[in-house]
Amino acid sequence: MSKAKVNQGINLDEYKNVWIIAEQRDGKVLNIALELLGEGRKLADKLGVELTAVLLGHNMDEAAEELVKYGADNVLKVDHELLKVYTTDGYTKVITDLIKERKPEIVLIGATTIGRDLGPRIASRIGTGLTADCTRLEIDETDGKLLQTRPAFGGNLMATIVCPKNRPQMSTVRPGVMEKAKYNVDRKGNIEKVIPNIKDEDIIAKVLEVIKTEKKEVNLADASIIVSGGRGLGNPEGFKLIEEFAKKLGGVVGSSRAAVDSGWIDSSHQVGQTGTTVRPKLYIACGISGAIQHLAGMSESDCIIAINKNPDAPIFDIAHYSIVGDLYEIIPAIMDAIDDADNILKEI
């Protein structure tokens, strides 16, 4: 096998349509696939082309139907026993074969732990560029190329990347950032079964077992209210107050990286560049100064409240409502106010 080459003056016009790689686990389509459909739909409409979802796995008829209802014009369903669980070797081979044969213009992959293993392997086998962990995608009005924007230097800098001379233009897309596609039960699309050319010996790095850790499930990405604590709590016990506050509001507990690094709370609660990206209805940051790496993961929230002793904390720059004060006084006062809401609201 000889190494592919880039910048070889290929005919860009041969490449058409937008593809998304729809990741499934245990036959269930991940949220990121629906987010890719949402974003892919916009790009395809802008370019006037079709949106195709590529689905690899085993026994997933329902998943293919679901992708159509969420906006895919076509689903390429590749069903094979060897594709049941993700392997780099199996998935790369099948998807690369399809891309070479059908020549899409854009391929989007979720920037999950799996997508970030798969994406570079596909791009380097084909001989094209890949932009990692994009948070914004646009079509250039002048020449129709894909503008791929992503954070670098821990979110301190944003870079817009292009892939001018090679196709497809490939991006991995950060989960939780793009808007999910709308579900429409009446939507119709083509579901095409693809027979893959894959054999047992193609898979060198094998998965022997899949282990699910029994970590308490923290579903930050889907929460509509998040109450987060940071180093300003002063000690790990502070999270008890945060938990109580979150419970009162019907929300879940988040945290800054500083609090995780201090060992005060499990990393599954971490919001930010290296944690989970969230956009809840209400985000309350308690004792979080607002390092860029944290802001990168929550600044798209609908309503942000910041509670901090330091009036100069950067978190206040992005908060819709800022409360300067000691969180150990403010939070109990808010909880009391909520209990007494009827009386308080009557007074005004």
Binding site: V6, N7, G127, T128, G129, L130, T131, L147, P151, A152, G155, N156, L157, M158, A159, T160, I161, V162, C163, P164, K165, N166, I292, L295, A296, S299, I304, F316, D317, I318, A319, H320, Y321, S322, I323, V324, G325, D326, E329, I330, P332, A333, I334, D336, A337
Partner: peptide
């Protein structure tokens, strides 16, 4: 020899005016 090029870089801007919730006591702010 690079297939990808940096088209532009920028610092994330936050031109946004929030409101400070004023009050004498924590209860007022709450």
């Amino acid at each position: 020899g690079s297939p990808t090029n940096v088209y532009k870089t920028f610092v994330p801007t936050r031109k946004f005016e929030g409101e400070i919730l004023e009050g004498e006591t924590p209860q007022d702010k709450a």
